[in-house]
Amino acid sequence: MTTETCAPTPALLALLRACDGSIEPRSQGAEARVYDVQLSGVECVAKQRFAKTYRLRELDERLTRSRLSAEARTMVRARKLGVLAPHVVHVDAKESCVYMERIRGCALKEALRSGETTREDLRRFGEEIGVAVAKLHDGGIIHGDLTTSNLMVRDEDGRVVVIDFGLSYPSKLPEDKGVDLYVLERAITAAHPSQTVLFDDILAAYKKTSQMWCSTLNRFAEVRARGRKRSMVG
């Protein structure tokens, strides 16, 4: 990758300079970089998507932009549904950048690995995550990338905040919801094999909260069975 593609775009750069922030991203992903920045005196992060150069440039820019708007819109919808996600503060479509509230805290992944989570903490995480996912699903939103890296534990009150709506999409299909849950289950069993009880708590809270839990959980069981078969065949 050339240094040029790594540089923040002009408006973002101006904001980083104006708040004496580091122009190094705090996170560098496959499709996005995340920077710490201040906007109107408030601590934010700027998530900037960049074009994957191996795709057609024009198609790519269009995809990047539609992803970006979907991500920002979905975060606002999630909060409307009562799901704790960062506030969106500003969207710069031209620079493919979403500015949002900076969550002070750590990834759930780190919290689980710290060895400091009690059974009681797990129960609370499970409850909050199950309720959040059920509200998203009932509101017709599939998160698309439910992992313990895309859930953060907030310092101020220990609450779980859902982040990274970059792969989210609208759907009410039980299949899509089932897959969403299955992705989460796999993420937990793979990354936290001794804490899979967390997923049981998530399902229990989901079942209590979602109006459509029955069709979703039936489909989830099928998705899971398919997944098992596939992994046995190899």
């Binding site: 970006l68 708007s69 920002a72 819109r73 975060m75 606002v76 909060r79 506030h87 969106v88 503060v89 500003h90 969207v91 479509a93 500015y99 509230e101």
Partner: peptide, 17 residues
């Protein structure tokens, strides 16, 4: 969150809504 935070988010997605 505050009412202002909620308003800011609507203003933010004006052009992508």
């Amino acid at each position: 969150g505050s009412l202002e935070d909620a308003v800011l988010s609507r203003m933010a997605i004006r052009d992508v809504a």
